[in-house]
Design a binder for these strands. Sequence first.
DNA 1: CGGCCGTGCTGGATCGTTCCAGCAGGCGGC
DNA 2: GCCGCCTGCTGGAACGATCCAGCACGGCCG
Lengths: 360, 360
Amino acid sequence: MLERSSKEVSTAGGDRVALRLDFRAVTSRSVTLIDVARAAGVSKSTASNALGGSGRVSEATRAHIQDVARQLGYRPNSAARSLRRASTGAIGLHLPRTATRLDYYMNLAFGAVERAREDGLDLVLLAPGSVAGGGLAARVDGLLVIDPEVDDPEVPDLLDAGVPVVTGERYLGGGVAPSGAVVCDNAASLIALLDHLAERGARRPALLAPDPGSDWAAALRAAAGAWSRREGVEVAVRTVPFAATPVEAEAATAELLGGPVDADAVVCAPDGAVPGVLAAAARAGRRVGTDLLVAACVDGAAARGSGPQVTAVDLRPSEYGRACAALLSDLLAGAVEPGAVRRHDWALKVRASTAGRRTA
Amino acid sequence: MLERSSKEVSTAGGDRVALRLDFRAVTSRSVTLIDVARAAGVSKSTASNALGGSGRVSEATRAHIQDVARQLGYRPNSAARSLRRASTGAIGLHLPRTATRLDYYMNLAFGAVERAREDGLDLVLLAPGSVAGGGLAARVDGLLVIDPEVDDPEVPDLLDAGVPVVTGERYLGGGVAPSGAVVCDNAASLIALLDHLAERGARRPALLAPDPGSDWAAALRAAAGAWSRREGVEVAVRTVPFAATPVEAEAATAELLGGPVDADAVVCAPDGAVPGVLAAAARAGRRVGTDLLVAACVDGAAARGSGPQVTAVDLRPSEYGRACAALLSDLLAGAVEPGAVRRHDWALKVRASTAGRRTA
DNA sequence: CGGCCGTGCTGGATCGTTCCAGCAGGCGGC
DNA sequence: GCCGCCTGCTGGAACGATCCAGCACGGCCG
């Protein structure tokens, strides 16, 4: 059954518009630029110019064409546009393989999506192994590579994909340099955290950090060393996986409590592992916040949701994602030179886990 | 400086191939099907047939063309292909607005990405508001809408986008029916959970669940009612947000402990809120696992990482994502009729939080 | 008044792929 | 021996947007 559209366009081409709407109802073909042009009584070039904002079109004509396009429900065919413009209108997002479980990356991804969307870019999630599968470079205009780890075999291929790449944090491996990067001052944030702990009475702080295969972890370890030298206080460092589980952190923490180290403050770099630190503290009979101060280098659901809540460095992942997408977008638009590096700010969230002794 | 390519193709058209390679080096234009055809000494139609697997091509010719294509580094232009085939090779993924923080959805998303990739589909992450922004339907061949909530204003638009839609869990709102759905038997999983709690000694179980705006929450509430009637034991139900925070869960739990309800087991539907339940238990002086049993309807980092670890229904989000993508892929391929519904299995993960009294 | 320029619009070519009609030639059946 | 069919391949026409050369027209200047 063919229903006549109730919506008609009140222009010179009105009857033809209704005709085309009916046509659509039957074949479900989509409205093309030519349909709009015909309905508006202009050529497709003018229609294109009017809708695209380019070229020379009188204000009256432009308004009329936009009106017609809206009423017909015109939406540009992105494939055709991509073909002609030699760009896909999409960017790819690569996240660390091991850490996809962390809500940190979820927030970052959605920040990036939103920002990309504002510039008309789609964001496609890159599956592990999508590079080897080929066909990648053809499908995206640029890439976001977040927390590139040196032992991630895909990162070099991504950097060499022939499209602009923005990394979140620096890439410590060699090869093709990325076109841009957004970096955090992780050294400064850890130093702020250690200062905070010291101020709250910590004398023997310890750090659980991944091996220095990522810029983040490397910066943390370097900062711990620098702080040690500056303060004349040794920071005990233990290695945990990049996406450590609570169980792994619990074992590492147990080793730090008592024994030769006998830490009175533990900084756990990966936020997902924080509950393990708390569990180890409970097991050792230490009261978190007074007997043992606990903090994390990344804020997340685990740090916010634990009891007591855990002091952490808020890397503001959503804004971080936005910043990465914004930089890539600027690179694609040619608004910024390749090699650009932008800084992203963090904030210290002080919570109950570092309350300190009242009497300190 | 123009370097002569060292790689030449040993065919009749060899010299022309080298020429074109040089050309590429200068202009950095990519290799097209026509380049391959010329180099192989066939027409573009034959080249297309040989590489695409369709049409009638002799085995010898096909092998030769594939060889040439590989040597030239040919990769099909997806925009041109999309334009011609009227399909984009990408699917969209929509997640609940409120719950993007949960690692559950992160895992689900990556499961879907991987499965889509296996069928050559890209997965684009849909930003909140991308529907209203327009340009959506044109860019994807199909949509994955996960845990559609009735009060999500975007869902009706997505269902009406004119492309096949697969929902994860059913959509309780009206409007256009989705083309497919992957569902969990959430009623069965909650009943299994309640049975488990009863077996471990619980006599006054309580449930924290969102309001019935999603199929999941509605099924949980219905199942709690059914179980109450079957067992003759009232299940106290309190409402928490879909993506409840620990603080919200703590308040709700505090109300259940002591007072008229005096629950001895709490089932917390959203996993992210579990730490709040544990905190309330600690505050009330209840020992989790013996004095108070605690469980969650979704397994996740919070349930696994807390101390003690919390019994939960593992919805296997990664496989869930794979199943959704697989169904959509089948729908797009026409391998399955619209309206198809597939079932996804869950598993009960029993952990320390429901150990029960030794003497029970 | 003629040349020139700027404005507003047009038609055609183009991007790289797939699809379709069709053609040459070999071969088997009647 | 002719017809028709099957195999293997070809050329051209889409797909829908953008870009470019160019055209008509009116106004301005010398």
